[in-house]
Simulated assay, not measured.
Amino acid sequence: MKTLAAIPCHDEGLAIGSVVLKARKYVDCVLVVDDGSTDDTVEVAEAAGAVVVSHGVNKGYGAAIRSCFNYAKGNGLDVMVILDGDGQHNPSYIPGFIEAAKTGKADVVIGSRFLEKNETIPKYRIVGMKVLNMFTRLVGNMETTDSQSGYRAYSRRAIEGIRIRNSDMGAGSEILTQVGDCNLNVVEIPIDVRYDIDGTSSKNPVSHGFGVLMDLIRIFEYKRPLHVFGGIGILMLGIGTIVGVWVIKSYDISGILPLGPTLLMILLFIIGTFATFTGIILHSIAQLFDRLKAKGE
């Protein structure tokens, strides 16, 4: 079984050497995907014995993850473990990931910070993670205690089946929304993550979480247009009906048809009908694409 530790990173010259040296003890190959670093990340990673793929310019976390998958796919790796290069993820967990993939017949192994009691995670992060877990479950129809964990392992089936389109931080959630479509088995193992390291994130946690949430909503719109547009349509038709009842009562009492509410009622019915039929049409198109994709595979 050929194993790979893949490390996407940007400006991690201070920590990447140590991470690579520790990871090399547990896998056949260590890959560092340098996402346009301006420091000595590439030189340090190569000196530590890693294979380096460099983007040249900063393309985003998702683009770095995509390069990890492309390398693993192109080199016939059986298991790929992805971890951060800033020192937050302890490489000593790598054997646990590989073992879970081998004995648990798992295609995706998620390192969860919530399977065991963990008091090191800031409370505001926990709240944000729970919200993103809920939306990931809604969009991907899968259960996980830590959808935002970047410490994961993937089997050959997952490596070949997953397609990453998101170039930013939403890539992790995007991957999980494909688990059901690709019939992948998911297991979780407990991990700890360090939060006492300075400069471990280039993004504010709030903006990061909001960005991931918007990405999940866009995926939901794409995968379930009937729920989105149909829901909006039914809501508009419901409000239009309420306004219509008020218009009828007002006309019965005064004998005068209120112009403003009547126009509002008509507008709501038009929008509601249009949105509902749009949802039905897009749902039919999405189903057709899924069937064509299944035939192609």
Rank of each mutant, 00 (worst) to 15 (best):
M1F: 09
T3C: 01
A6L: 07
A6D: 01
I7G: 00
H10M: 10
E12I: 01
E12C: 04
L14Q: 12
I16L: 08
A23N: 05
A23R: 01
R24D: 11
Y26C: 02
C29G: 03
V30G: 03
V30W: 12
L31P: 03
D34R: 04
G36T: 10
S37T: 06
T38N: 10
D39L: 10
D39A: 01
V42W: 05
E46A: 14
V51I: 14
V51F: 08
V52M: 02
V52T: 11
S54R: 15
V57M: 11
N58W: 11
A64S: 07
A64F: 00
I65Y: 10
R66Y: 14
R66T: 13
S67K: 12
C68V: 04
F69A: 02
F69M: 08
A72T: 07
G74S: 00
N75R: 05
N75I: 00
N75W: 04
N75Q: 08
G76E: 05
G76T: 01
L77G: 10
D78T: 08
V79Q: 05
D84I: 04
D84L: 12
G85D: 03
N90M: 13
P91C: 02
I94P: 03
I94V: 12
A100S: 13
A101Q: 03
T103H: 06
T103E: 14
T103R: 12
D107N: 12
S112N: 09
L115C: 11
L115Y: 04
L115D: 10
E116F: 07
K123Y: 10
Y124K: 12
R125Y: 09
I126W: 10
G128H: 07
G128S: 11
G128L: 15
M129H: 15
V131R: 06
L132I: 08
L132M: 09
R137M: 03
R137P: 05
T145Y: 07
D146M: 10
D146Y: 14
S147A: 15
S147F: 10
S155Q: 05
I159Y: 04
E160W: 02
E160I: 08
E160P: 04
R163Y: 13
R163G: 02
S167P: 03
M169F: 09
M169V: 15
A171H: 08
L176N: 13
Q178C: 07
V179A: 11
G180T: 14
G180C: 11
D181W: 08
L184Q: 04
V186M: 04
V187Q: 03
I189R: 11
I191S: 12
D196E: 04
D196G: 06
D196W: 03
I197E: 06
T200P: 06
H208T: 13
F210P: 00
D215G: 15
D215T: 14
I217A: 05
R218A: 13
F220S: 09
P225N: 00
F229V: 06
G230N: 04
G231L: 08
G233P: 05
L235H: 13
M236G: 02
G240I: 01
T241M: 05
T241K: 05
G244N: 02
W246L: 15
Y251P: 12
I253R: 13
I256H: 15
P261E: 01
T262Y: 01
L264N: 02
M265Y: 02
I266W: 12
F269A: 10
G272A: 08
G272M: 04
T273E: 11
F277C: 05
T278E: 08
I281C: 07
H283V: 02
I285S: 12
A286Q: 15
Q287S: 13
F289K: 14
A294C: 04
K295T: 11
E297M: 15
